[in-house]
Nucleic acid binder design. Structure first.
Ligand SMILES: [Zn+2]
Ligand SMILES: [Zn+2]
Ligand SMILES: [Zn+2]
Ligand SMILES: [Zn+2]
Lengths: 539, 539
DNA sequence: AAGGGTTCACCCAGTTCA
DNA sequence: TGAACTGGGTGAACCCTT
């Protein structure tokens, strides 16, 4: 037999270990390391090659490999207490300490309950908590099931004997990287359809058309919000598991859709009201004047300004890129066009890159956008930029000539819609239909177009959006703005009608976008701008 | 044997050293020197013969030899943070500071401050201070046993004259003679191996076998690189000026304009200013002003103070009332319980009266409330007190035990949620859901809870509210405060998301309240506190 | 005893300022 | 340039409940 002292070795770094920590034999430092770092979602980066050997000496140098090793040897995140658990524990400790102190100490200070002097304090206490809590310490079947520190683990049996001989197959942990980076085209289109349908929900419509309808029609909030909080997953149904679960007939426990939960829409509309409420609008009661109030005007103005930056520029970017593009095109025309893509089409496609760049710029000028987290910004732009571009371009479309007038180019660069016919599929038809059915009256109204762009930008169900609720809020805010704008310009009835039609256009736009993406996917990646490749995940 | 005090000597200049810097033992000045110069491109020239002795005196004469020496003794460029890293770190520090400030300012509950010099805080919170003293008594003699980070230091002989070897097992760096400009990967690794093989523990070496570190930024890693370098020190655009001016008139100042001041006026004017602030923050939009400004902080602080009155108390009120209650209960148990109400439930209900009394006190400490007309004060309290109480109690809820811990009672008074099951209807379910779905992270944040309480208090559509507009304005101002508080603590996206969720909680609370009221209405009035009878119009 | 969390001195980056 | 300072990460020692 070995010397028993040496028997335990940290599975991570090989240092001396005292016992199990988070389901694996580790040293104290790796235990602390794991506790501190396993739940943070920040990505460590290995300064070397992701295969560092972890020793007591080297363990400090590379957090990434150390953490990876931790997980590899079976350390289990679930055993780390949540914030709530910790708070609870602290509280309990505090309690015990107080009790001990007051018992051990003089005790006379605070506890003079005059009337009950004959009874002990404990009993006194029981009058209040009669048979609920005090009991439960000993034999109340309610909470007796397991008293493990961490209620997450149900199947863990701490009483295993012979820890050494039994091979340490402890808990099978479910630590795995989510890695759901599956941004497939399928996925994308799926999303778009969903969008369309949900937006058409009458509840949704009515929530805008009537100023303050709270409509219960809508079923549960379709926002799963999986990504954003790390612990809700673990704490969510904690209550369900313990005390209340046993002898009490529990009728509805983890129902997803509860009748009393307020529909998300109504919360959003509430929030939007907050956003636009002004002193004046409150003061003069409900006499919502048709004119835009200051907040509304400010919001609209923000868009206009953001767009300014997009309009004024300049030859350089476009010129430069134009040349690049031309080179590409020429190059392709002269030589090796191993693919069928027509140069004119390719030209248009790459022109898209220019547009996208500007849209990014523009988006960055919208505060609500700028304040979002990086991930969401990327997701929204990636998912929405082409739609936005098409929306903007609709304004520039000359329906008599069937071509776009690209601004800010010396010689007006007209791109005829015919080029899209070159693309396979029905991208052309879609686009044509979209524009043709877009009444020039709205299509040429800058304000409308800009608001529509914002609505499109803040589409909550783009792939990989994290804070869907926030995006949704912002989108609704722009829907509201659109309605208000229309009301301020048109008579009530007409405004509503236009509003509906515009919503229709947004949905159509999604459709067109799909087709456009098809076209892009059909192109040889080597011939298009890197930006586009990134945006569309062309591989 | 050496004097252990002098054990550490700068490997570059021989000055006193404190520890490792950039992977070598150096003094502070050589550390700074290396950080500043190691990454610069410029070639230093030795004014002498490239062999200067570097001493504390001479070290500043020749940068070239000094830097060479640095590299020779193993200082490692890779450990100098990149500009990007630094920006990131700065930002994080900034965030933390903000968070600490805004939370610390209000004295978050359980967090003990560092080790305060004992008497910074006064009678303010005796419960806490007592507990820390006992703590700090115990563990004074903690750790001198702290061995150098590197335990193998024992084998490190600082007196070795062979300066070219790397003596200890720290990081093997890729700094090599700058002589060869052709830093090919081959070249580099070659050097790496050469250097290390001769001097390093093979085990250590193998751990970094595959290292391909290139001195500056590795190019190999295909990082998406949408880094957030939008950290720009900007124009500090403090709203403090307007803010303070707004802050002042709150109390008494306004007399000068009129001998007789209608309370509303001051409120309204405040609201207008507040709104102005909101505006400018929208307009300027830059997220720089994430910190709460003075006015905001003051507003929050008012709540905290108001709440203090609610926390510190005291046995007397509760004790007294406890006795009252007990009488009631006893009375009921012994004799004429002509109604079915369970004593425990009745107990809880009457405990409610205690809470309500405190809430009234608290409300009276809020200026905006105090300044309202009597009728509205009554209406708001009547309509809102139970909701407020539930909101406050959410903070005290122990979800593992399913019970509340009523503070400021010696032996913790636990009220199990089960008592509510005794009530008919689904009050219990509602309450449980409300709390269970209330993320502890927010639920236990005193600031959040207090602001939510204020929002609930100023609910404009309570029955019999006269000046709805005034109430609404006040409520909006607290909504605004909530938003700002969240922004000051969380990143933009996160903040908004939380904001929405909290709004939802408020709505839910209304629902729960209805149920609760049903319970109360079901109770025999003779058994409950008169206050309750008044509040709930029990007849 | 096991195995959770907590504490605090220490190490070493960066930052400030004279 | 360099002394003094700030602050995040680390780990040995310790505290607490089961
Ligand atoms: Zn270890
Ligand atoms: Zn590594
Ligand atoms: Zn030195
Ligand atoms: Zn020299």
């Amino acid at each position: 037999m070995k010397n028993k002292v040496d028997l335990k070795v940290c599975g991570v770094c090989g240092d001396k270990a005292l016992g199990y920590n988070f389901n694996a034999v580790t040293c104290e430092s790796c235990k602390a390391f794991f506790r501190r770092n396993a739940l943070t979602q920040k990505e460590f980066r290995c300064p070397f090659a992701d295969d560092c050997k972890i020793t007591p000496v080297t363990r400090r140098f590379c957090q990434k490999c150390r953490l990876d090793k931790c997980i590899t040897i079976g350390m289990c995140k679930d055993l780390i207490m949540s914030e709530e658990d910790k708070a609870q524990k602290r509280q309990k400790v505090e309690e015990n300490r107080a009790k001990k102190r007051s018992i051990g100490g003089s005790g006379s200070s605070n506890k003079r309950m005059k009337k009950e002097s004959s009874l002990t304090d404990l009993q006194d206490n029981e009058m209040y908590s009669s048979s609920y809590n005090t009991d439960s310490d000993q034999d109340n079947s309610v909470s007796e099931g397991y008293q493990l520190n961490n209620p997450n683990i149900v199947s863990y049996n701490p009483n295993q004997e012979n820890k050494n001989t039994v091979n340490d197959e402890r808990i099978a942990c479910s630590d795995e990287k989510p890695s759901d980076d599956s941004l497939t085209f399928q996925n994308l289109t799926q999303h778009f359809y969903n969008v369309n349908h949900s937006n058409l929900d009458p509840a949704f419509l009515s929530s805008f058309m009537n100023s303050n309808t709270v409509n219960n029609n809508e079923t549960a909030v379709p926002v799963p919000s999986y990504n954003n909080n790390n612990y809700t997953a673990s704490t969510e149904n904690r209550l369900g598991e313990d005390a209340s679960s046993k002898d009490v007939p529990r009728d509805v426990q983890s129902q997803k859709s509860h009748p009393y939960i307020h529909p998300f829409e109504s919360i959003l509309s509430e929030a939007i009201k907050l956003e636009y409420d002004t002193y004046s609008s409150i003061a003069q009661g409900s006499s919502q004047s048709r004119q835009l109030n200051d907040a509304e005007r400010a919001k609209l103005n923000e868009l206009v300004l953001a767009n300014k930056a997009l309009l004024t520029p300049v030859e350089e970017e476009l010129g430069l890129l134009g040349n690049e593009l031309k080179d590409v095109v020429k190059n392709q025309m002269s030589g090796q066009n191993q693919q069928q893509t027509d140069p004119a089409l390719l030209d248009l496609i790459n022109l898209t890159a220019v547009g996208i760049r500007r849209i990014i710029k523009m988006a960055k000028k919208i505060n609500a956008f700028k304040n979002m987290c990086q991930e969401d910004q990327v997701a929204l732009l990636k998912g929405g930029c082409t739609e936005i571009m098409m929306m903007i371009s609709a304004r520039r479309y000359d329906s008599t000539k069937n071509s776009w007038k690209i601004p800010s180019i010396q010689e007006s660069l007209n791109v005829n819609v015919n080029v899209l016919k070159l693309a396979k599929g029905n991208a052309y038809q879609e686009l044509e239909r979209f524009i043709r059915t877009f009444d020039p009256k709205w299509r040429t109204d800058e304000n409308i177009i800009l608001i529509l762009c914002a609505i499109v930008l803040f589409t909550p169900d783009r792939p990989r959006v994290i804070h869907q609720d926030v995006v949704k809020l912002e989108q609704n805010s722009y829907y509201y703005l659109l309605r208000r704008y229309l009301e301020s310009v048109y008579a009530g009835c007409e405004a509503k009608s236009i509003f509906l039609k515009l919503m229709q256009k947004i949905m159509e736009l999604h459709k067109v976008n799909e087709e456009l993406i098809n076209v892009l996917l059909d192109v040889n990646p080597s011939q298009v701008e890197p930006l586009l490749i990134e945006i569309f995940d062309l591989k």
